[in-house]
Each structure stands twice: as C-alpha cells, then as structure tokens.
Computed example of a mutant assay.
Amino acid sequence: MDEPSNQQRAIELLQQLGLKEYEAKSFVALARRAEGTAKDISETSEVPRTRVYDAIRVLESKGLVETQHSNPQVFRAVSIDEAVSTLQSEYVGRTETLRDALGGLEPSDDGRTTEATHEVWAIEGDQGITSRTEQLIAGATEEVVLVIGHGSIFTDRLAEQLQTAHERGVSVVVGTVDEDLEAEIQRALPEVEVFVSGLEWLRGSPLAGDDTEISRLVLVDREAILVSSFTETAEADRTHEQGVFGRGFDNGLVAIVRRLMATGLPVEDDPEEGGVAG
C-alpha cells in the first residue's frame, strides 16, 4: 500500500475511533515528522491554519500531542505505540460506559420474551458472525463442535478461544474441509480433536448451479447452532458472510443441523442419547 493510501486509511481509522476530521488530519501530519508548527501542520494536512490550533488543543487533551511553548509554538505527536495505547484505553472505556448505559435501559416490551424453541435469527457480515461465534464458544459449558468450511475462518484469536474452552473442560471438536487445513489446526491445537469432515455439501455443487460455500458451522452444548456462508459481492475478489443462528434443543433448525453434522463426525452418536461426538 502506497503512502497516500496509508495516510488516508490512518485518517479514516482515527475518525472511527472518535477524532474529528481536522484532529485526525493534524495528528497524521505530525506523525509524519519529528515536530512542526501550526503552519507546518496546515501545509502538510491541508487543515486551515486557524483550525489547527483547535485540533491541537483536543489532541493535547487526549494525550496524543505535546506542545513546546516557544514562539511560534512547536508541536509533536507522541510515539505510535503510545498513541495506539491511549486510543485503545479510551475506546475500551467508552465501550464499558456504553455497556452500563445499555444495561440500565428500562424494557419497553412489557417483559415479553421469545421462547428458546422458536429462536432463529439472521446475522449479516463477518464481524457480527465472528462476534457471535466468540460468544458461543465463551459460553460453552460442555461441548463445542466447529466445522470450518474456509481457511480464513481459522484465526489466531479463534485458536486461542478454542484452547481456552478446552482448558476449562469443554469438549472441543473441529472439522475441516481438507487435510491441509486439518494439519494447520492440529499444529495450533495439538490437544484438540481435529478431523476432515465428511460433509460434502459444505463445498456446494457448481455443476448443480449451487456455488454457495459454507464458511462455518458451530454447535454448542447441543442446543445452539450458527451456520454461515460466503456469497460473492459486486466488488472483485470480495465475499460477504451471512448466517443464521438458532437456540433451543427442540428448535427445528438446531435439530436438523445437529443431525447433519453428526454424519460428518469421526464418531457418530445419537445426539438424543449421549452427545454429538465421543
């Protein structure tokens, strides 16, 4: 990625983390040099000079910029590591405050709840689906069966979560679509049972006009299921992940997928009798 692209990406990310446009541009301009005056920052960032001072005051209050009170004043950005750590702490603080605020909301549905046996929801986007996968694994008490249909799903973070679940006594079984991915996962999780799944329908059937690629199947404690797939987007070489989530042992979606998954496991058991896998 060239420098202009890096610069624009940095500005966009800083704005996503709470900085306004001129603040983000001013910080990036300072990050590119050892130090600079308001004039230097304005010339580098294209922020009007009269607005640079306002932006710097905000950045200074956030601990992102230091000021030398000379004539003219000179500014410098803190180190990249310090800036990232500072923004991360602020972001975490805001999310915790958001958690408290949302948790304190009064319910507006008169206490009505959805019965678990009828709980089926659609989920869009890899971030949301990844987050739900993490929540399911973190909440597992007995068993996690995960079938990975695409190598990009298996990340270091997912491996860490599966290992943590295994260490707290949860039975973890991971299925893959090919031997290469099986070997990669087994190296990362040597104490976890890993196998090549016999679920041929994970790959779809192009000859039959079905090129849908199942990206992940997650079954937790035999009562919660997440199934997702990749679909092509208009943008070249990009895919969009979408899925469905169901909960409840008597849920039809859970029951059907649980039995389908059992056909691809190395040890087949009747889920009604004693679990999905031994």
Rank of each mutant, 00 (worst) to 15 (best):
H69F: 01
V227Q: 13
T114I: 13
Q161K: 12
A159N: 05
R9L: 03
L136F: 06
L189P: 04
A224C: 11
L64N: 08
A183I: 13
R238F: 08
R112K: 11
S108I: 13
R99K: 09
A140E: 01
D156Y: 12
Q15G: 12
V177Y: 14
S79A: 15
D40P: 04
V170Y: 02
R76V: 04
E213R: 15
I129L: 15
V28F: 08
A277H: 03
P72Q: 10
S215F: 07
A10I: 02
I11N: 00
D40G: 07
L202K: 04
D221E: 08
T114F: 04
T117K: 09
T117L: 00
A255T: 08
V194P: 08
S205A: 10
R33P: 11
Q242S: 15
G93M: 03
S26Q: 01
T97L: 14
L64Y: 02
I123Y: 04
E21Y: 00
A116C: 11
E124C: 05
L102C: 07
L199D: 01
T130Y: 14
K62Y: 12
T130V: 12
V194W: 07
S215G: 13
A224Y: 02
A159P: 09
M1K: 12
E90N: 03
G125R: 10
Q161H: 15
E115Y: 03
G198Q: 02
V74E: 10
K25H: 00
P266T: 12
V78M: 02
G103N: 09
R51E: 01
S152E: 01
E160M: 15
P48T: 02
Q73T: 09
A224Q: 15
Q186H: 04
V65C: 03
G111P: 06
F245R: 10
V28H: 08
G36D: 00
I225F: 04
A34C: 11
L87M: 13
A140G: 01
L98C: 13
A55Y: 02
K62D: 06
T164S: 15
R216I: 00
M1I: 10
I153D: 03
G125L: 07
E35Q: 11
L217I: 14
E90S: 07
R32Y: 11
